[in-house]
Design a protein around this nucleic acid. Structure first.
Lengths: 217, 217
DNA sequence: GTCTATAGATGGATAGAC
DNA sequence: GTCTATCCATCTATAGAC
């Protein structure tokens, strides 16, 4: 939820309308997919008029891209912060497990059922496969935040060839991106209820156990 | 490519038209996404008239579902065949690595640059996140083919709790589903060209090394 | 800034000729 | 069975009143 100034000026109304559109769009996109949500759906859900999207954001695609940019920036910042802390704790050479924790923990914590950002994570994951050409181009070419992780992993795995580290990072990202509602539901059916999604700390530990062992292969 | 009878009867023309629509639709859907491809795009690409989709398949969504059903059935059959062979080789108790190979190898081999089925794999992966409600329901509830893999893995890992095996299978599926064109491109940018997608045998070995070690954590 | 009304474009589906 | 022409619904974007 965005912070909205709560006074009686027009600026507050403007900000409130814009924020309402932003939040409604993010939620509807995350739940139903980008192409399945119309500007009409968004404005109706936000309780504002139809023209608001174009007035405040320029177009539907621009709105989509703004949500995408803000949320990915927040996620990258949080991951970078945790990686930085891992560096500080380990004199600049953190072990694989702590590097992976900085990669896994932010989206997992955010996806927790009681977290406001739960919907943001689903939006980000969805943008990876359903985004506009502009978003996909940004995803492909803007890898600077990932480079910090691959550099750290290469330093932590001096015995592994560089390309092996890149591939294993790719595998880890696949593990993260697979954490979608539908996939959890499927796993729940397969395991006949033995897997519960709610406990994110337990899931984080499971992912770290698996991935850390994979890096030591 | 579908098998088409090549005689001069009307049936051959009918089959040829239907097959042309099927192949064009699969390719365009796989490349550009389901919602970004119109019936007009498909019929234009296939060189047939606009009404063909509705005549032969009923609707755009029904066409989509038929492609989905055929391709997933083929993939599941190939995986089951390899799992069966692994069973035969190991007196009914194959090791983790051979089970995972039956899970990984079919989609990887099909995705090889010189394989006709390369496009089918991308279609299947895309259907996982962009499919219709009908397709998503089928994906969630039809887990019988996966159950054979989880059963085999549980038998191969007697020391692991059942739910741990389910989660690790979930992680492995995430590794598979992340093998999309866009993700390979991104990895290529990140590694500055050090990772090449072309060698599927090498990639299969990398995936098996990583996942097998993860199961032994 | 907000809202209504509508332009302008596109898409799925179908009727009817051949 | 094939194809053209068309209907009708839906969508984004915008003009213009207030």
């Amino acid at each position: 939820m965005d912070t909205v100034k709560v006074d009686d000026t027009g600026e507050a109304h403007e900000a409130a309308t814009k924020a309402a559109v932003f939040c409604a769009a993010e939620r509807l996109f995350a739940l139903h997919g980008f192409q399945n949500v119309s500007v009409r759906d968004i404005t109706a859900d936000a309780g504002v008029n139809l023209a608001s999207v174009n007035y405040h954001f320029g177009s539907k695609d621009a709105l989509l891209f703004e949500i995408f940019r803000r949320r990915t920036a927040e996620l990258n910042r949080e991951r970078a912060r945790m990686l930085h802390e891992a560096n500080d704790r380990n004199a600049g050479k953190p072990p694989v497990r702590e590097i992976l924790e900085a990669l896994f923990a932010p989206p997992l914590k955010w996806a927790s059922p009681d977290n406001d950002r739960r919907i943001s994570v689903q939006f980000i994951i969805r943008s990876r496969s359903e985004g506009t050409a502009e978003m996909r181009e940004a995803l492909t070419n803007d890898v600077s935040h990932l480079a910090r992780f691959s550099d750290a992993l290469i330093a932590a795995c001096p015995d592994l060839p560089r390309e092996t580290v890149y591939w294993r990072l790719h595998f880890c990202l696949g593990m993260v991106h697979n954490n979608r509602f539908a996939e959890f539901d499927r796993l729940h059916v397969l395991s006949d209820g033995a897997t519960r999604e709610g406990d994110v700390d337990a899931l984080l530990k499971r992912m770290l156990d698996f991935a850390e062992a994979g890096f030591q292969a």
